[in-house]
């Protein structure tokens, strides 16, 4: 296999799926760092976002990219609502209770998708898209959009976290929650912001997965493990780490086919997760270990 083939058939698809994982992993890492629990309904929120966009695409006849902002807003609102109704009153209890609740929420969100949209595969647009060739590199337009959108969304988030007052408050809450409270930072607002961001990014992950593959009611749940592997690989609480982790997990999954039967592609993320917990639980960029 020559180099171009490696890039075309493994690296490029790996970076695309990795960008999608990155979008989800950033939300997971923020929730992990600020609210301090593993949110197991994250994948299914992505599924919901993807199907919300489908409703907009079929309802108004616009492109999935145009539907993205609506899906982001809708999913962010659902995430905030779930927190208010189901998670908020568990805040004083051990965090693992919320993890359990989130497993139930995963089931509930998926059930809603299955009732409304059924369990058959759907897609935003019909037909096969052939890749364009640039200097021997075979790339589809949608793959370029996916990577650019990931970079843009995470870039805006980074600016928000480092430059704005509330972004800094989120970092402060992640860094030292007691001191943040002593400084008068409003915990409720920080929690709400976290869910808006995490929910919005979930929707983006779901929509781009739908654009690049197809929409299924299990699509998000199947992304949960790679997204967590990415967050832990990068270092919990590190936004740039989650992006790096997502890209590595995505590329590793594609490359795994070279050494493992392709049925075991999904096992790559699990192997990375266990390996990191074994040798470097703080992740590549020295995150938190809860």
């Amino acid at each position: 296999m020559d180099f171009l083939e490696l890039v075309n058939f493994y690296i490029i698809p790996g970076l695309v799926i990795g960008s999608i994982y990155a979008l989800g992993a950033v939300g997971i890492t923020l929730v992990f760092a600020i609210l301090r629990y593993a949110h197991l309904a994250h994948g299914d929120l992505a599924t919901l976002g993807a199907f919300l966009a489908l409703a907009v695409v079929t309802g108004f006849g616009i492109s999935p990219l145009a539907a993205l902002p609506i899906a982001i807003l809708g999913t962010a609102a659902v995430a905030v609502g779930i927190d208010k109704v189901f998670y908020e009153h568990l805040r004083e209890r051990p965090k693992i209770v919320t993890v359990m609740a989130s497993l139930g929420i995963a089931l509930m969100v998926r059930a809603v998708v299955q009732v409304i949209w059924g369990v058959d595969s759907e897609s935003y647009v019909k037909g096969i898209v052939r890749p364009d060739v640039y200097f021997g590199l075979r790339i589809r337009d949608r793959e370029i959009y996916t990577v650019i959108a990931m970079i843009a969304l995470v870039g805006v988030l980074q600016v928000f976290l480092t430059q704005s007052k509330w972004g800094k408050a989120m970092r402060a809450m992640s860094d030292n929650p007691n001191l943040a409270l002593l400084s008068g930072i409003d915990n409720k607002k920080v929690v709400m912001l976290t869910w808006i961001i995490a929910g919005g990014l979930c929707a983006a992950a779901g929509v781009f997965l739908g654009i690049n593959t197809e929409l299924k009611s299990m699509m998000g749940w199947n992304m949960l493990l790679p997204m967590f592997a990415a967050a832990i690989l990068g270092g919990v609480g590190r936004v740039e780490g989650a992006v790096l982790g997502g890209l590595i997990v995505g590329v590793a999954e594609e490359l795994s086919v070279l050494v493992l039967p392709s049925e075991y592609k999904a096992a790559t993320a699990f192997a990375i997760l266990l390996f990191m917990l074994l040798v470097r639980p703080t992740g590549l960029l020295r995150g938190k270990v809860l």
């Binding site: 007052k165 800094k168 408050a169 970092r171 402060a172 860094d175 030292n176 001191l179 400084s183 930072i185």
Partner: peptide
């Protein structure tokens, strides 16, 4: 009693 991962200036800002 500090935010370790934030800069001195950001600590004061908080």
């Amino acid at each position: 009693n500090i935010f370790r991962e934030m800069t001195i200036h950001e600590n004061l800002e908080m």
